[in-house]
Design a protein around this nucleic acid. Structure first.
Lengths: 159, 159
DNA sequence: TATTGTTATACTCTATAACTATA
DNA sequence: TATAGTTATAGAGTATAACAATA
């Protein structure tokens, strides 16, 4: 194959719409394809561990903040809806990875924390996850990875 | 705000798991966030035009290959299932943007083509879409955009 | 009256496979 | 028997909002 898929699409556009410069569409197409491919691989790995990406997000949030959190705090950190957090939380409780305790100050509220098994699970999964992420970036040298990081920071300063 | 969200997450991980180097997770997290934000904006724009991203993909495919295509060819180009193509095609036919003609050689098959209104729609939408893509990349200079492109090509040579 | 967390409903979207017509 | 396209079913996942308890 002489050229890749994105290049082929751009070539086709240049023939029917020579007035349009589709360079930016190509770059963004590549970002979206790359992100999509990665997402599939990441989802596949989590699935092997019995988790969805959403569930991992919740577990990882609890692990890295290193203290119990309320469901409200969790859905604000993860950008999930409150309903989605409750639903997923229930599964994680059933699995024995997290537990809830009633709040002392506010009896409407509760604190969610990782059980010992939950901590062990996250620590195991995240270690392998990071190794997988290293793998995904391995086509780039360390300095190229840093370049990429800087470009992304410029693109989305707030993220 | 002293540091951005990704940097904050990495800082938190460094405190609870100092043994882990989460650099790659941060970079990939940025790519996924960026892609997700862009996707939302792109979907929003298409919605204004009365289209879903999937519908635009189908219309754009027909436009750039510049000739009628069978449903099978379409779903192979777009990576949708045959069922998804049929369903979406039906909506596009109802809207008057595409039409089907029976195939001469194979009476099981048909050719899908853009109507005049369909071509006008795609040409209008894709022109604005490209302008939007230019906007999304505008935080980067031309040479930085080229750098990004080259890094992405290295990461996903086949895409 | 507002807020917390849960639950129930509805919606979007797709893949899968059953189905028909034809090869 | 295999293939092209359509249709129907079911599934995953979420947001939304109704709800109960408390502030």
């Amino acid at each position: 194959m002489p050229i890749d898929k994105v290049a082929n699409v751009l070539l086709q556009w240049s023939l029917v719409r020579p007035d349009l410069d589709c360079t930016s569409m190509g770059i963004i197409g590549r970002v979206r394809r790359t992100s999509g491919e990665w997402q599939k691989k990441i989802d596949g790995f989590f699935k092997l561990k019995g988790l969805s990406s959403t569930e991992f997000d919740i577990l990882a949030t609890l692990r890295r903040v290193n203290q119990p959190a309320t469901p409200t705090e969790i859905y604000r950190s993860t950008m999930l809806s409150s309903g989605a957090v409750s639903t997923n939380l229930e599964k994680l409780v059933q699995a024995g990875w997290v537990a809830r305790t009633a709040s002392d100050e506010d009896r409407r509220s509760c604190k969610v924390y990782l059980t010992e098994q939950g901590i062990a699970l996250v620590d195991d999964v995240v270690t392998q996850h990071v190794a997988n992420m290293d793998d995904l970036l391995s086509p780039l040298s360390a300095s190229e990875q840093q370049q990429l990081q800087q470009l992304l920071e410029k693109l989305m300063p707030e993220s």
